[in-house]
């Protein structure tokens, strides 16, 4: 019998023609060996976010550590489908080492491109990692602002 992947390609079916789940090797690699899994202790250099996808129940926690406006480390935990796990893993890979400014430019399309594509109806999963990332950056920036405000308060006579 022919390899089903060959048949699939020959049929020129795209991911929208049916609920066939066809993850490429890069996605499978990030699913089976997700990068940057873990947690961080809270701290002034750490931003944290907990986000959920109300359409499917996926949930994600993400931490970033920032030194001199650069994301030096990221950790995440995820309750989600293979699409959510793989895209979150790739999102952390892409963001690590970027400045906050650069990381804020990252989109779910960047994650999907880096993975070499994911099934059409799984694309919404890729939003989770990016949303968590942006929320963690916000959390960090807010913390900095509050810390600065406190510093300013201390300076007052």
């Amino acid at each position: 019998m022919q390899d089903w992947k060959d048949l699939y390609r020959q049929s020129q079916a795209d991911e929208t023609t049916g609920p066939i789940l066809f993850y490429n090797d890069t996605v499978l690699d990030h699913f089976t060996n997700p990068r940057n899994v873990g947690e961080m202790e809270p701290g002034e250099r750490v931003g944290f976010a907990l986000v959920g996808d109300p359409t499917c129940g996926d949930q994600m926690k993400l931490w970033i550590r920032v030194e001199d406006d650069i994301i030096t480390d990221i950790k995440f935990r995820s309750f989600g489908c293979p699409g959510a796990i793989a895209t979150s893993s790739m999102a952390t890979e892409l963001a690590k080492g970027l400045s906050l400014e650069e990381a804020r430019e990252l989109t779910d399309d960047d994650v999907i491109t880096a993975l070499g594509g994911i099934p059409e109806h799984k694309k919404h999963c890729s939003l989770l990692g990016i949303t968590a990332m942006q929320a963690a950056i916000q959390d960090y920036l807010l913390k900095q602002m509050m810390a600065e405000a406190e510093d300013t308060d201390d300076d007052l006579p």
Partner: peptide, 8 residues
């Protein structure tokens, strides 16, 4: 744990 992740 997510069911689809177990399945895959």
């Amino acid at each position: 744990v997510d069911g689809e992740s177990i399945l895959l």
